[in-house]
Amino acid sequence: MLLSSLLSIAVFSILALANLQHEIDPRIKTALAMGQGSTGASTTPDGRLFLILPHVDGSHGNRIVEVIDKGCNGSDPKLVGFPDENWNSWNASTDNSIDAGVKYVSPNAQRIGPDGKLWVVDSGIPDQYQNSSKLISFNLETNKVDRIYYLGKITTGAGLLNDVRFNGKFAYLTEYTIGSIIVLDLENGHARMVLRKHTSTIAHFPDSADGKFLISSSTGKPQYIHADDLEVSPDGKYFYYQPGSGYMWRIETKYLNDALYNNTAAGLLHMYTEPYSPTPATGGTAIDAAGNIYYSDVDRHEIRYVSPNQTTTLLTRDSRLEWVDAMWVDSEQRLWMCASQLNRGDRFIQPNNQTYSITKPVYIYTIDVDHGPSPIDHS
Rank of each mutant, 00 (worst) to 15 (best):
A326N: 14
P45F: 02
D210T: 09
L20E: 12
T44M: 06
Q128V: 09
F138M: 03
W336H: 10
M327V: 05
K70L: 06
P308A: 10
S123C: 09
G157W: 10
Y104M: 02
Y129E: 09
R304L: 14
G220R: 13
L2W: 12
L79M: 03
W328A: 08
P206G: 08
I125F: 07
I293A: 02
T94S: 15
L151M: 04
N19C: 10
I9Y: 12
L268R: 01
N131Q: 14
G40P: 00
F170Y: 06
Y150P: 05
S42D: 02
A227Q: 13
V105M: 03
T39C: 07
A10K: 08
G267Y: 05
N309A: 14
G372L: 10
T199G: 15
K254I: 13
S132T: 11
A265R: 00
L32T: 10
I367P: 05
T201A: 11
A191S: 13
G113H: 06
N257G: 03
Y294P: 12
D258G: 03
Y104E: 12
I349L: 15
V298R: 00
D228V: 03
P206A: 10
A18F: 14
L15S: 03
S42G: 07
G116A: 04
K169E: 08
D368R: 05
V329E: 15
G113Q: 01
D228S: 05
P234H: 10
Y150D: 01
Q223M: 11
G152I: 10
S307I: 04
L6P: 13
P308K: 07
L135E: 00
S180D: 07
K221N: 15
V65G: 00
S42F: 00
A158T: 07
N88T: 04
V324T: 10
S75G: 05
E252N: 10
G152D: 06
L184C: 03
R192V: 01
R165C: 02
E66I: 15
D288E: 03
P308W: 15
P26M: 12
P278E: 15
F205M: 11
G244F: 04
W328T: 06
W323V: 02
T94H: 13
S132D: 08
G211K: 11
S5R: 12
A31D: 13
G81P: 05
H198V: 08
T279F: 12
I9R: 15
E332I: 01
P77I: 06
S216E: 14
D46H: 01
P375L: 14
A281Y: 09
Y176G: 06
D368G: 02
Y294D: 11
S374W: 10
L6A: 15
L268W: 05
Y276K: 08
I251T: 10
D297P: 03
D185H: 14
R111M: 04
K78M: 14
F348Q: 04
R304N: 12
L140W: 09
I64F: 02
S245Q: 07
C72V: 14
P107E: 08
G284T: 09
T219D: 04
A281D: 01
V11R: 06
S208G: 13
I24Q: 05
T201M: 13
L186W: 00
L135M: 11
H371Y: 07
M327N: 05
P83C: 08
K237H: 12
D235R: 04
E274W: 02
V298Y: 00
K254P: 02
T316D: 01
D346E: 11
G157V: 13
V232K: 03
G37V: 00
T155K: 09
N88D: 00
K117P: 01
D76N: 09
Q130V: 15
